[in-house]
Design a protein around this nucleic acid. Structure first.
Length: 594
RNA sequence: GCCUUCGUAGUUCAACGGAUAGAACGGAAGUUUCCUAAACUUUAAAUACAGGUUCGAUUCCUGUCGAAGGCACCA
């Protein structure tokens, strides 16, 4: 923030104290509202070489800054804080610049290529609330990185094979009676998920039965389970390419993909490229050979392959089982290579839950040891679990908040609320109404999940968590709709922003809005750097709040001079633009009327 | 057992080591002859505990208590 001041401060230090400091280490914040100033420089660190007390140091720097920068109107010092006030010309010039910039909010091209892998579903069950957080984060961070000037490739790695898939398949074979999405009326992914739950039920019943009748431990019962043995046989058959199994697998997966397509469309997310684990699960083999040859991996007597990471503070990790099959991390090593071969990206972001923190630490370290050029570009965008009041969601037991159900409930809630408020009296066709309910409901859901720092776990109470008032998506959408309404009713005249500015003194609420607008590109950069959409969510909420205060206290249309009204209309139009662009970065639509 | 995260108003979330710890919901009290009241204004309410580091600690370090997650040839 205010980086031009940092450079000037560094200059002052060099000229007066024969020291060099890095501009990046200087702290400049927005001034808290109770103090006079636009920004605040923390001068405590400078007292070391200024040999003055904090107040005197602040005054010294304030004076020097004012000499060097014509934009500074005044300064004041409170304790060790130097508050700077910029003059009106500065803020108006910034507003003009932003207004004239057709691509405001699009940062300069970096020439960097970034891959974002997200969603990465399993094909044995429908998506749930946790997946929604993943999808929204992935989509949003991709948008933010684009705005930061990067070329972005969105990918997903579909987990379409493995023992869990076989469980659904086996249960369907045994209990399904040929049920299909068409015959049952169920969405394909829900139908398959139903049999995944069926399997778990039948399996638990079998174990219970075995324990009771044969008087053995649960552990032993698990080994004797016929269901589990059949499932494992099915996995072997799949790997051998047995036609009946492949046919069943293809059919059931296609049901799931049809279901996912609907969910993704409703969520508003998409991918440039999908990788399938059924194509990549054997890729780790060559990596194992490579690692052994380089001496990075070791092979035990039983033929299993390992890497010893104890010197790096981690564990000894298996990479290939004694039977020669590869494990999860080995596949990831292979897939990382495949992705790099395909795209040669500079950065590769994995949007994956924080229960895999350790896994990604290990993955990156192994790739480094293998001297892979792309190892440093790997970034695990780790996000916290979404928790329910009742505890953790368990898809095996079916105790989940289903993604499709939740979206429908949100849209329904938006509908009820909208009708209750009497918002739709005029000018909405049935189609427009449905579209509006969808936009508001999804806006509420998306904002709710994105406003929280991704790293942190979050609590979701299905009964009361999602509000449409307060710090919510609909609040921001509503603010946008009000501005659009003002602009509809009061067409901007042909007076340009520059001509409407003239020289009347800016009201503090007008200035506050200009300051928020000024922050937009800075926030985008910050969000990109931190891989954190919540930065944008908090920003746009503040902007909307700032507008609401302005709107309530000032009125756009009742200024003293016509040029001032025109100026306010320009200003407010700019606010709407920034809200629109910010929300786009979050993947949230903003209606013009609601 | 070892490792990693996290404990902030009643609740859900904020706060690059910076000023008097901010919002929202819920509670209390107000504001619609006027641009959309899903709004605005006022008000009560919190850093788990004990030490340490320094000009300054919710933030960094140590310990205690509490919560979640990971590690054993699952993905």
């Amino acid at each position: 923030m205010f980086n031009f001041l940092k450079d000037t401060i560094a200059e002052i230090v060099t000229e007066n104290f024969q020291q060099t400091i890095s501009p990046a280490t200087i702290q400049i914040n927005a001034t808290p509202t109770d103090y006079v100033g636009d920004c605040t420089i923390v001068v405590f660190p400078f007292t070391k070489f200024s040999k003055l007390n904090p107040e005197a140091t602040g005054n010294f720097f304030g004076e020097k800054l004012k000499e060097k920068n014509s934009h500074i109107e005044s300064y004041n010092v409170v304790k060790g804080f130097l508050n700077i006030v910029f003059n009106q010309q500065f803020w108006l010039a910034e507003l003009s610049k932003a207004n004239a910039d057709k691509t405001f909010g699009q940062l300069a091209t970096t020439g960097r290529k970034v891959m974002v892998e997200y969603s990465s579903p399993n094909t044995n069950k429908p998506l749930h609330l946790g997946h929604i957080r993943n999808n929204l984060l992935g989509f949003s961070i991709a948008e933010i990185l684009k705005a930061c000037g990067n070329e972005v490739i969105k990918t997903t790695l579909v987990n379409d094979r493995g023992i869990h898939i076989c469980k659904s398949m086996l249960a369907w074979q045994k209990f399904g009676n040929g049920e299909t999405p068409a015959s049952s009326g169920l969405k394909g992914d829900h139908l398959v998920g139903k049999y995944y739950v069926e399997f778990d039920k039948a399996y638990k019943a079998e174990i219970k039965n075995l324990v009771a009748t044969e008087n053995i431990s649960e552990e032993d019962a698990a080994k004797k389970s016929l269901l589990m043995q059949e499932t494992q046989q099915m996995l072997l058959d799949w790997e051998a390419g047995k036609p009946e199994v492949m046919q069943l697998w293809t059919m059931m997966n296609s049901w799931v993909y049809d279901g996912f397509a609907i969910t993704y469309k409703k969520l508003g997310v998409d991918f440039d490229k999908a990788y399938y684990e059924s194509n990549t699960y054997l890729l780790g083999k060559s990596a194992v050979a490579e690692g052994l040859q380089q001496g990075v991996f070791v092979q035990d007597k039983d033929k299993s392959v390992w890497i010893d990471l104890t010197a790096d503070g981690l564990d000894r990790k298996i990479l290939q089982r004694k039977d020669g099959t590869s494990v999860y991390i080995t596949q990831d090593i292979g897939t990382a290579q495949l992705k790099y071969d395909d795209y040669k990206m500079d950065e590769s972001i994995y949007v994956v839950g924080n229960e895999q923190d350790y896994h990604f630490k290990v993955l990156q370290l192994i790739l480094k040891k293998l001297d892979k050029v792309y190892a440093d570009g790997i970034y695990h965008l780790s996000y916290g679990m979404v928790e329910l009041p009742s505890g953790k969601m368990k898809s095996r037991e079916g105790t989940v908040v289903d993604a499709d159900d939740l979206m429908d409930e949100m849209i329904e809630a938006a509908k009820q609320k909208t009708i209750e408020l009497g918002k739709l009296d005029d000018g909405f066709s049935e189609i427009e109404k449905e579209k509006l309910f969808y936009t508001i409901g999804m806006g509420a859901l998306k904002y709710f999940l994105l406003k929280v720092d991704p790293k942190k776990k979050m609590m979701f109470n299905p009964d009361e968590s999602i509000e449409l008032q307060g710090n919510t998506g609909p609040f921001i959408q509503y603010t946008h709709a009000r501005i659009c309404s003002i602009l509809r009713n009061n067409k901007l005249q042909r007076i340009s922003l520059e001509d409407s500015i003239k020289n009347y003194p800016l009201h503090s609420l007008e200035k506050a809005l200009i300051q928020e607008i000024y922050l937009f590109p800075i926030k985008i950069e910050e969000a990109g750097k931190e891989h954190n959409p919540a930065v944008i969510a908090n920003y746009v909420y503040n902007l909307a709040k700032e507008f609401n205060s302005f709107y309530t206290e000032l009125s756009v249309l009742k200024a003293e001079h016509e040029s001032e009204i025109q100026f306010r209309l320009h200003l407010v139009e700019m606010v709407a633009k920034v809200i629109n662009k910010s929300m786009k970065l979050l993947g949230i639509e903003v209606p013009e009327k609601m």
